[in-house]
Write a protein that binds this DNA or RNA. Structure first.
Length: 920
RNA sequence: GGGCGCAUAGCUCAGGGGUAGAGCGCUACCUUGACAUGGUAGAGGUCCGUGGUUCGAAACCACGUGCGCCCACCA
């Protein structure tokens, strides 16, 4: 006997272990089975489960369980990401807390070892959390981006792209994170508007030259007043970079500055002279119209400097301190950039060259992980030629080889990928895939899979340049102690470089494995829109380049999970809802169902506790329905054939279950998780529990016989259908019930998904049962309105034609029970003093004269009559419209006519009932 | 500056050319033998505004208003 409630805390773990132990999570490889695969978006090894993961993995698990039950050979490939910066940060922080020596003190090797140790010890908490959620990944295939196989793939890809000319080394301006002292890609920079200042400086002209600068204009913009200036006015939001100015630029059309173009001005503090040049970049209407050009510290200026061959002065070191260089005045050397800013403004002011300071909102770049201001710095880095790789990735989506769902997200994808910039992939970190490039003498470098390979390349290269082997050996022993000929690049690759390979690297590439054969391209990628650029686009590029096929058929983009006020959850806001707390409180099933039920396409999800509670209650409802079935010995009967049931009630539930299966299947196929969840919810609660079980009670609790036997089997059948259809959403409770209710040869997780079956349809039964349900509802409604005590039983008389009378007869017992009737009769004329309900073609009379309030009853009937009259008026208006009758589809016109007739009939009966009341 | 999205019940949100929906909340009644984590019955809506398309618009289109988000080098 089942307990009164599902003890999910106790059961979930056991059930999960049972699944895993049975091998249910592995692909079936059943002969002839279609394959279906999903690669998990690998969570950071440092991570713990947040609500975004919960949603993401719930949806994946729903698809996986659905397809598994549909008989496909299913692989959900799990794994984790080494998350370069994030992990390095975590371990360094930990070392600091333990007051251990710093990373730089213990050296690279020791540090990397520590990270691995940390990973073994506490990395991957999230895997266990995913298991608590019920994720049915094939854990035997778990991968890690830094494990041997995947690292091999990374090296192969890097070398191949290099050979293809799609990876190159370049010195250019890059986004530099001074906290982590590494380059980062454009995507890792977050531009945020902050309060800043706009400083206006005077740069004095060389040799005290002067010019007339217009300061007033008439309506037509012609200057009316001039002043004599011996300087050019520039404005900047970043005064500290002025030391690196190589020029001042104005727009060629800017007449104000025409007299001084080509001349030079003094760069204050630096005491250098720099040219005044023209370029299209300055906007004459902004600021003073003159822009200082700092080629080495600003992306715009960089391009201007390149165009005009203007000297770039590198001002900052890796920590964004001013460098020790002859072009930096001694005073500022070694100063932090912000200290330098302050000092420079003061010094400019002291020289009388500060015109004014304005407050100004400025867009400032921040490192997405470090949170510090990003500094554009010139460095040597490795770049991927993303533009070339992007081409086929664009075409693949254009041609529909990969589809976005909702398709709108394809626009976002296109917008970015069509304007893609070179991707900086090198990071000055220690935790990650080391770049397979080796440097040798004379500035040569060699890209190869191994040092041995690189050495061969080097020897060939140096030999070709005329060096003898002996020379090379000399070079090898160049320094005392024998420095090696080649030194490997110190840098590692961007984490996303390895995650871009995830769909094929996890399946065994570069080896030709059966898994690659079977499961690539993967079927569906489930992810949120915030990593379309970081991840989806890059997987598309790498997947197509290396596999010659797109990595997935469909990219399903789900919503972001927000808090109940619509705010993005974040630690700093303190509004994080921890999925594990919800799981403890309401069970994994409840959380999963909530997320699925709210996962409408193209919307954010606002999560609230009450919703989760509601869907936990749904589980309890199901549990108790099952308990009822158990108590009434509704056992699954293998010999039961739903197509041959004889009672209308059973035909109806079979029909409804079939309809529900069709709906759930259709909605899941279309990734409409919310509609799928809604369909099974309604069927379970509003059809099976509210009506079927109630209607079946008289039979189940009545005398033994064929009808009772059939009903028991039908109830068990319907319940089994529910368990199956609900299983992807609520795997634990359904599996528990499946196991408890009957001895089965298969666990629910591997049972067969209900398929639509034409033979199970029964519109006749559906119509008949709807009549019964409406009748009962109608009587209940009137009872309530007339304040008939809930416990009181009252008689009822039906006035109607033969078909209605026959229906009434069939279902007399349940109607009496559910509507609380003492006696049911039929008649041709209504009894006196009765409340009358118009029900289809019939009239239901409840002779409760002694309890009814005549006026209230009149009011009720009048209200209904008014409603019917209004409806008829509305329909008449339509039907009177010639255009409507002519142009609307005949079906719609017919519909309106039928509706009108129905209301008309109702109106007539209501009129008669009112007339009878008048006579009382 | 470009791009995307959203305005429907008190709250959170589905839906979608003809008849307005869910969950939660609210009101009244009900400890009836599966379930009070429940049952029954209710109240509650100018579907943001304006114009257009259409026989018909809450739905489609345009504009407006308000609110989000993404991308972007205005110093």
């Amino acid at each position: 006997m089942l307990d009164k409630n599902f003890n999910f805390n106790e059961a979930e773990g056991q059930i999960y272990e049972g699944w895993e132990a049975s091998g249910a999570f592995k692909p079936s490889h059943a002969p002839g089975a279609e394959s279906y695969s999903i690669v998990i978006p690998p969570p950071n090894v440092t991570g713990s489960l947040h609500m975004g993961h919960a949603l993401n993995n719930t949806l994946q698990d729903i698809l996986i369980r659905f397809e598994r039950m549909r008989g496909k050979s299913v692989l959900w490939q799990p794994g984790m990401d080494h998350a370069g910066i994030a992990t390095q940060m975590v371990v360094e922080r930990q070392m600091m807390e333990r007051q251990e020596p710093k990373r730089t003190e213990i050296g690279r090797e020791a540090f990397v070892e520590k990270v691995w140790a940390w990973k073994e010890e506490s990395g991957g908490t999230i895997i266990n959390q995913l298991k608590r959620l019920g994720a049915s990944c094939d854990w035997s295939r778990e991968r890690f981006t830094m494990d041997e196989g995947l690292s091999e793939a990374v090296v192969k890809v890097f070398v191949q792209l290099y050979k293809d000319g799609l990876i190159y080394r370049d010195k250019r301006l890059v986004n530099w994170d001074p906290k982590f002292e590494t380059a980062i890609s454009d995507l890792e920079v977050e531009n945020t508007e902050v309060d800043g200042h706009f400083w206006h400086f005077k740069y004095p002209l060389e040799n005290g030259e002067t010019y007339e600068f217009p300061i007033k204009h008439d309506e037509d913009g012609n200057p009316t007043k001039w002043e004599t200036r011996d300087y050019i006015s520039i404005a900047t939001t970043r005064p500290e970079t002025m030391l690196g100015d190589g020029a001042v630029a104005v727009h060629p059309s800017d007449k104000r500055y025409a007299p001084i173009v080509g001349k030079r001005c003094l760069l204050p503090l630096a005491d250098r002279y720099i040219p005044i040049i023209t370029d299209d970049y300055p906007d004459p209407d902004f600021g003073s119209g003159a822009v200082k050009i700092t080629g080495a510290h600003d992306f715009n200026d960089y391009h201007v400097a390149k165009r005009h061959d203007i000297t770039m002065y590198d001002l900052m070191d890796s920590k964004a301190r001013l460098v020790d260089a002859d072009y930096v005045p001694e005073k500022y050397r070694g100063m932090d950039r912000f200290d330098a800013r302050k000092a420079i403004v003061e010094d400019i002011d002291a020289r009388g060259l500060l015109i004014k300071v304005e407050d100004k909102k400025i867009m400032q770049p921040f490192g997405d992980r470090s949170g510090v201001v990003i500094e554009p710095i010139r460095t040597d880095q490795w770049y991927v030629d993303a533009k070339t790789l992007a081409q086929p990735a664009i075409e693949a989506v254009e041609k529909g080889e990969t589809k976005f769902v909702p398709e709108n997200w394809a626009k976002t994808y296109f917008q970015w990928i069509r304007n893609i910039e070179p991707w900086c992939v090198s990071r000055q970190l220690w935790w990650g895939h080391r770049i397979p490039a080796w440097y040798g003498p004379d500035g040569h470098f060699f890209v190869a899979e191994t040092e041995e390979e690189a050495t061969k390349l080097a020897i060939a290269k140096y030999t070709s340049e005329g060096y003898t082997l002996e020379d090379i050996n000399d070079m090898r022993r160049h320094e005392h102690g024998g420095s090696p000929l080649l030194v490997q690049d110190e840098d590692v690759l961007d984490t996303w470089f390895s995650s871009a390979l995830w769909p094929f690297s996890t399946l065994g590439w570069p080896d030709k494995t059966p898994e690659l054969d079977t499961f690539y391209p993967t079927s569906t990628l489930v992810t949120a829109h915030d990593i379309i650029f970081f991840w989806v686009a890059r997987m598309m590029m790498q997947g197509i380049h290396f596999m010659k096929e797109v990595p997935f058929d469909t990219v399903y983009i789900h919503a972001l999970v927000l808090d109940e006020h619509g705010q993005k959850m974040s630690k700093s806001k303190g509004n994080i809802i921890d999925p594990l707390i919800l799981i403890d409180k309401y069970g994994a099933d409840a959380l999963r169902f909530t997320l699925a039920a709210q996962a409408a396409q193209g919307r954010n999800i606002r999560l609230s506790d009450s919703r989760v509670e509601g869907y936990r209650n749904f589980g309890t409802k199901l549990w108790n329905a099952a308990r009822f079935c158990e108590m009434n010995e509704c056992k699954t009967d293998p010999a039961f054939d739903p197509a041959t049931v004889s009672s209308t009630l059973n035909q109806w539930i079979v029909h409804e279950a079939n309809q529900c299966a069709t709906a759930v299947t259709r909605e899941l196929e279309a990734f409409r998780f919310n509609d799928a969840a809604g369909a099974i919810y309604k069927f379970t609660w509003n059809v099976f529990c509210d009506w079927y079980l109630e209607l079946a009670k008289p039979v189940l609790q009545g005398e033994d016989g064929p009808e009772k036997t059939e009903t028991r089997a039908a109830a068990a059948y319907a319940l089994d259908q529910i368990l199956k259809l609900l299983h992807p959403f609520k795997p634990f409770i359904t599996e528990a019930l499946w196991k408890d209710l009957a001895a089965r040869d298969k666990a629910l997780i591997t049972s067969e998904w209900p398929q639509f079956d034409e033979a199970l349809k029964s519109e006749v039964a559906a119509t008949e049962m709807q009549w019964v349900i409406d009748l009962i509802s109608g009587i209940r409604s009137v009872r309530q309105e007339m304040n008939v005590p809930a416990g009181a039983k009252i008689p009822m008389t039906l006035l109607g034609a033969a078909p209605d009378k026959s229906k009434l007869e069939t279902h007399e017992q349940v109607i009496a029970r559910l509507a609380r009737l003492s006696d049911i009769s039929t008649a041709d004329a209504p009894p006196a003093g009765a409340v009358e309900i118009v029900h289809g073609d019939a009239v239901v009379a409840l002779p409760i004269a002694d309890v009814i309030d005549i006026d209230a009853e009149k009011a009720r009937l009048q209200k209904e009559r008014d409603k019917a009259t209004n409806e008829i008026a509305g329909i008449d208006k339509k039907l009177a419209n010639k255009n409507f009758v002519d142009k609307a589809p005949p079906k719609v016109v017919e519909e309106q006519k039928t509706r009108r007739a129905d209301y008309e009939a109702q109106l007539e009966k209501l009129g008669q009932a009112l007339a009878r009341l008048e006579r009382l």
